[in-house]
Amino acid sequence: MLRKDTKIYIAGHRGMVGSAVWRALENKGYTQLIGKGSGEVDLKSQQQVSDFFKTSSPEVVIDAAARVGGILANNNYPYHFLMENMQIQNNLIDSSLQSGVEKFIFLGSSCIYPKLAPQPLKEEYLLTSSLEETNEWYALAKISGVKACEAIRKQYGKDFISLMPTNLYGSHDNFDLETSHVLPAMIRKFHEAKSRNHEPVTLWGTGKPMREFLHVNDMADAVIFALENEFRDNLYNVGTGEDLTIKELARMIQRIVGHEGEIVWDSTKPDGTPRKLMDVSKMADAGWKASISLEAGVRRTYEWFLENINHFKQVKL
Rank of each mutant, 00 (worst) to 15 (best):
K142C: 01
Y9N: 00
R153K: 08
S144N: 05
V223T: 01
Y169M: 09
E102Y: 13
T245M: 14
I224A: 02
T166D: 02
L163F: 07
D94P: 01
K158G: 03
H198G: 04
V60Y: 13
R3Y: 11
I224T: 00
A185T: 11
S109Y: 10
R153D: 02
E199V: 08
C149E: 05
R14S: 13
L131K: 06
E260S: 15
T273Y: 06
S162Y: 05
V315Q: 15
M219S: 03
T31A: 06
V280Q: 03
L235E: 01
L2V: 15
M1L: 14
T245V: 11
E199R: 14
L121Y: 03
T128Q: 11
S195Y: 12
V315C: 10
V201Q: 06
G241H: 04
P58R: 09
G157T: 02
N74T: 02
N91F: 11
K54M: 13
E199W: 09
A286M: 14
V68Y: 06
D42E: 05
G207Q: 04
G70A: 05
A65I: 00
V238F: 08
G35C: 05
L97H: 04
E40Q: 10
A117K: 13
L121R: 04
A185D: 02
K269C: 08
G29V: 06
T31Y: 01
A141L: 07
K289I: 04
G15P: 02
I187Q: 03
L277S: 10
K44G: 11
P165N: 04
H215T: 06
E199I: 08
N76V: 12
E199H: 12
P120S: 05
E228L: 10
G108H: 05
A66W: 06
P184C: 04
H198L: 10
N91G: 12
L107F: 05
S293W: 08
V41G: 03
S291T: 15
